[in-house]
Computed example of a mutant assay.
Amino acid sequence: MTNLLLALVLLASLIAVAWPFLFYPLILRLLPTRAETPVVGPVPSASLLFCAYNEAAAMPEKLANLAMLKARHPTLEILAFDDGSSDDTAALIAAQGDLVTLLRGPGRSGKAHGMKLLAARARGDILIFTDANVLLDPDAIDNLLARYADPAVGGVLGSLHYLGEGDSATAAVGSLYWRIEERLKDEESRTGNVLGADGSIFSIRRSLYPEFPDSVLDDLTVSMAVVFAGKRLVKAKDVIARERLVTGRKDEYRRKVRIAARAWHTHRHLRPQLRRMAAIDRFKYASRKIVRWFGGLFILTGAIAAGVLALRLSPMLYMTGAIGIALLAWIGLRSRGGPLAALVDILIAYAATLQGVLKAMSGRTVTTWNPAKSR
């Protein structure tokens, strides 16, 4: 392999890693704005749904938040699914029977299964999905339902604001990543459709709720059904949800492996419909999903190309670089903050995502979840 070819492989790897965070946002900014066209009509009814497993610590604050939302919206239906919790989660929810209707699972069956049961039970025109540890701002429901005044809008995402950014390097990296993610969704929404939601806060018209297996990510599957139906999936900056960041590396690693594995299964399940999307939506999906899922592979390929190139140019340069990188990685792993710790956490996140994708490609999946202990 010639030095030129090695340099080209290194350059291509760097571009691929930077694509979702640098080149893709720049391209989005060049696209025209697609305006919404609201019409005068009644405010639709809504059902708020969430699943919980061993969230007893978060339940008092969650239930107080729901009571506040219910006071502002007396007709809001609130449904919860307990996935066989071994703590007091179900008891705490059941004690608020006038506020929340509780469905109990037979054991560990997973969030996707629970959400399907809740959606089948819900009566609201709009289904609002959130997580057990997420709190909504007082105006969130008002602002969310207002976007459905446009009949072309089939789904609305909210904005997630993380708490605890300074608690650890892992939390700081997670917060930075999510701020970038939020800006990308803002630009995608401005130019047409957001390509997928996360489970913290999003909504769809009940008539668009799809059928799907328990092995997929329900939030991605359900939100993409809006795009497949020819409706708009948009993001509302003023629909604000708040969640505490994961601060432990092990917790975050396991979380990313689980999400990536289920995301790949979701991709395979949705592939026939993805191929029928408009060209601009296929471009968005590939840029924000597929390229990012394989970011760890691009980093590994680039590192190998850089190492071989350095070795061909000068063995001393190769040895010096290898020792320097190993030393910086050691310092970063032992640090709780600072740029080196942040860099290590970024690399760990890429490794976890790649492991999850490879796990799913081998046929394995994850249907259940556990709350992070370091939240």
Results as ranks from 00 to 15, higher is better:
Leu195Thr: 12
Gly230Ile: 08
Arg232Pro: 01
Pro272Ile: 07
Thr191Val: 13
Val246Glu: 00
Val257His: 00
Val239Tyr: 01
Arg276Asp: 12
Leu208Tyr: 11
Glu252Thr: 05
Glu188Ala: 14
Gly196Ile: 07
Lys237Gly: 05
Val227Ser: 10
Val246His: 00
Met277Asp: 06
Arg276Gly: 06
Arg206Ser: 15
Val227Pro: 07
Leu245Asp: 00
Thr191Ser: 14
Ser223Arg: 07
Asp251Ile: 09
Ala260Arg: 03
Ser203Arg: 13
Gln273Leu: 10
Glu188Phe: 12
Leu195Ser: 13
Ile201Leu: 15
Ser207Trp: 09
Val216Asp: 09
Leu274Gly: 04
Glu188Tyr: 09
Arg244Ser: 02
Leu233Phe: 03
Ile204Arg: 09
Ser203His: 15
Val216Ala: 07
Asp214Gln: 10
Thr221Cys: 07
Phe202Glu: 13
Thr191Met: 11
Glu187Val: 08
Ala225Asp: 01
Asp238Gln: 05
Arg276Phe: 07
Val239Glu: 06
Lys231Ile: 03
Met277Asn: 07
Lys185Pro: 07
Glu211Phe: 03
Arg276His: 12
Ser189Cys: 11
Leu220Trp: 13
Asp186His: 14
Val234Met: 02
Ala241Val: 05
Phe212Thr: 06
Ile259Lys: 02
Ala261Leu: 02
Ala279Thr: 14
Asp198Glu: 15
Arg206Phe: 08
Met224Asn: 12
Glu181Ile: 06
Ser207Leu: 10
Thr221Phe: 08
Glu211Thr: 11
Leu274Asp: 04
Thr247Pro: 02
Lys185Val: 08
Ser203Thr: 11
Leu195Met: 14
Val226Tyr: 00
Tyr209Ser: 10
Met224Ser: 09
Arg262Glu: 07
Ser203Phe: 14
Arg242Ile: 01
Arg254Cys: 02
Asp219Cys: 08
Val239His: 00
Ala279Cys: 07
Arg232Asn: 04
Arg205Phe: 07
Glu181Val: 09
Lys231Gln: 08
Glu243Cys: 02
Phe212Gln: 06
Arg183Thr: 13
Ala236Gln: 04
Arg205Cys: 09
Pro210Leu: 12
Ala279Phe: 06
Gly248Thr: 06
Tyr209Thr: 09
Ile201Ser: 09
Lys256Phe: 04
Lys235Tyr: 05
Glu181Gln: 14
Ala261Asp: 02
Glu252Gln: 13
Lys235Glu: 03
Arg183Ile: 11
Leu274Lys: 05
Tyr209Gly: 07
Glu243Ile: 02
His269Arg: 06
Ser200Met: 12
Leu270Trp: 04
Gly199Met: 10
Arg244His: 10
Ile259Met: 06
Arg275Ala: 15
Trp264Lys: 00
Thr247Glu: 00
Ala263Val: 02
Ala241Lys: 05
Leu274Val: 07
Asp218Pro: 00
Arg206Lys: 15
Val227Met: 07
Ala260Pro: 00
Glu252Leu: 09
Phe228Lys: 01
Glu182Thr: 15
Asp238Tyr: 05
Phe228Ile: 02
Val222Gly: 04
Arg275Thr: 11
His265Glu: 00
Leu184Arg: 15
Arg244Gln: 08
Glu182Arg: 15
Ala241Ser: 08
Phe212Glu: 04
Ala261Asn: 02
